[in-house]
Structure formats: structure tokens, C-alpha cells
């Protein structure tokens, strides 16, 4: 029963996210609206942590698996990709590495400086 309610709350919020996605003309996905709704509901106490926790954490633990179908779909896009595959992979790799270095370093730098001030 508990898990059924938890699942229904999460699905209902996903539905609200979907509605917002249809109504508001911005390229923001339903899932991000949903995440904002659940976060706000938790902060204001409308939804208690115990009403979503176990099912939510279960979904998060199997999250990586949910990307398998889309990634296997690369198989079908081979023809489109062939032309600029080298550029595609090079740009993806280089920018991922530089972004991790830059944003990680800057975040860490500001946190450490603030900790020293205290």
C-alpha cells in the first residue's frame, strides 16, 4: 500500500509536469518541471519525505538502465552520423573533459575560500 501511494504521487507529479510542458511554450521537459514541483512540495511540507522516499530512491537506483534503449538507437542513426563522426566524438569528448575541469575547479575554489574565511 505504502509503495502504491508513493508511486502514484510520483506519477501524478510527472503528469503535472507534462501538463506544464504542454501549456508553457518553452523547451523545458516535463521531468524538469516535475522535479521542481516535487522539490517545492517537499520544502513547503505539502508532501512529506516518507510519502515518496523508498519508491523514489528505487527509481533513481535503476535510472542508468533507462538510457539503454535510446543509446542502442544510435544503431539506426549510423547513416546520419557517418559524415561527421570524427567531429562529433572529438567535440563531445573534449568539451566534456574541459567542462568537468573548469566547473569542478571553480566550484571547489569558491567553497574552499569561503571555508577559510570562516
Amino acid at each position: 500500500m505504502k509503495y502504491v501511494i508513493q508511486f502514484e504521487i510520483i506519477v501524478a507529479i510527472s503528469l503535472m509536469g507534462e501538463l506544464l510542458n504542454r501549456i508553457i511554450p518553452l523547451p523545458v521537459p516535463a521531468s524538469i518541471y516535475g522535479m521542481a514541483i516535487l522539490f517545492t512540495a517537499l520544502c513547503t511540507g505539502i508532501i512529506k519525505l516518507s510519502q515518496v522516499k523508498e519508491t523514489g530512491m528505487y527509481l533513481i537506483s535503476i535510472l542508468p538502465m533507462m538510457f539503454i534503449p535510446a543509446a542502442v538507437g544510435l544503431l539506426e542513426k549510423w547513416d546520419v552520423m557517418k559524415g561527421f563522426l570524427t567531429a562529433l566524438i572529438a567535440i563531445s569528448l573534449v568539451s566534456t573533459v574541459t567542462v568537468i575541469a573548469v566547473s569542478g575547479f571553480i566550484t571547489q575554489f569558491i567553497i574552499k575560500r569561503k571555508e577559510k574565511e570562516r
Binding site: 510527472s14 521537459p29 524538469i32 516535475g34 514541483i37 519525505l49 527509481l59 533513481i60 535503476i62
Partner: peptide
């Protein structure tokens, strides 16, 4: 399940 799971990411964020 991707949408509900992404919604659930609000839980660790809240914690």
C-alpha cells in the same frame, strides 16, 4: 520510467 525517475531526483536534492 525516465520521467518519474528524474522527478524523483528532487528527493536527494531536498535532503
Amino acid at each position: 520510467l525516465l520521467t518519474p525517475a528524474t522527478v524523483a531526483l528532487a528527493i536527494p536534492l531536498y535532503e
